[in-house]
Computed example of a mutant assay.
Amino acid sequence: MPSPPAAILRHPDTAFELISLHGAQRFPRHSHDQYGVGLLCEGAQRSFSGRGMVDALAGDIIMVNPGEMHDGQPLHCQTRRWHMLYFPARLLEAAADAANLSPFGQTLLPPVSQDRRLTAAIQQLTARLLDSATPVLARDEAAAELLSRLLRFPHGQPLIASGHANLEQVRQMLCDCHDASLRLATLAAQCDLSPYQLLRQFRRQYGITPHAYAAQHRLQLAHRLLHSAAPLADIALQCGFADQSHLTRAFKRQYGFPPGRYRQAAT
């Protein structure tokens, strides 16, 4: 039986985005530029995180920090169902400022938690986002409660900090250049390393290979551009994909749904 389609929900009066997925899809290693907080409702999964490999079971909270490399696959060949709330880092930064916590740095969320009060806060905000009749004030209160619960986790430097200056130069080149003919030797020459040394050091620093990093960056750019009115074909070319079909395949593999479906929820 095919899995139900992804549910994507966004209200114009909130910065939270609710993504609900159900299936056995395996997600490649990638990162988001937002926080992600949610509940694994059914099944189980194993995933890489900034703290190593972790397992999550039904009922567990699953979380990801901005810039944190992670992936996900079902355990024991089970399908899994989960709800995720994504929101920009500025929301938690503002909450930290109000609580005089910002000097301690970024809030570092663990990949898995069983915190009961946080579970209740996630369930409350999810329910209020799903109910279109919920007053804006009630959604605001649920969002504030969730953020206050998240601030109880430790604060510190990002899990994946900027790398060595030479590796950072390579990373920036991967973000700026969408040329499919870019060679590993060209990147290695930027930091006086052999291609083999660059591959090993880049993967150690950023969690993925240079090619995977470039592909992920193009998808993140496409994700942001889907909020514009630009045609999908134009977005694909602007982000370095061969065509719209290429973008659609890559986008669905990383996010679990095609870009067209995401755009419908974004407008």
Rank of each mutant, 00 (worst) to 15 (best):
E42I: 01
A144F: 01
L75E: 09
R183E: 12
L137F: 02
A138P: 01
P74E: 03
D176R: 13
V112M: 01
I61C: 09
T126L: 07
F48W: 15
D192M: 09
F257E: 12
L21D: 02
L40S: 06
S148M: 14
H30S: 14
Y213W: 12
L221Y: 03
S245Y: 02
R200I: 09
A142E: 07
L232F: 08
L199P: 01
L85G: 14
H76M: 13
V54N: 01
D179P: 01
P12L: 05
C177E: 06
S181D: 14
A233W: 03
H30V: 15
A236D: 11
L75A: 08
H223V: 00
P103M: 02
R171Y: 07
P231D: 11
C41R: 12
P2T: 05
A127W: 03
T209E: 06
S47L: 13
A229N: 10
H22N: 12
M69D: 08
F153M: 06
Q216M: 08
L21Q: 09
P195S: 10
D71Q: 07
V112K: 03
S3H: 13
P154M: 10
L159D: 07
L9K: 08
G43A: 02
R263L: 11
I208T: 08
G36C: 15
L130E: 12
H70V: 04
A185D: 12
A188V: 04
Q157V: 09
H227R: 06
R203S: 13
G156S: 10
Q114N: 06
Q25A: 13
R263F: 09
M1Q: 07
F104I: 04
D140C: 08
H217L: 06
F16Q: 00
A95D: 15
T119D: 07
I160D: 00
I61M: 03
P210Q: 05
I235P: 10
H76G: 05
H217W: 12
G256V: 04
A222N: 05
A89I: 08
L40G: 07
A138S: 12
H217P: 00
M53L: 14
L125A: 01
V37G: 04
T267H: 10
A15L: 15
E168T: 07
G67P: 06
A215S: 06
A58K: 01
P2R: 05
F241L: 15
L150H: 06
T119E: 12
D234G: 02
Y206P: 08
R116G: 08
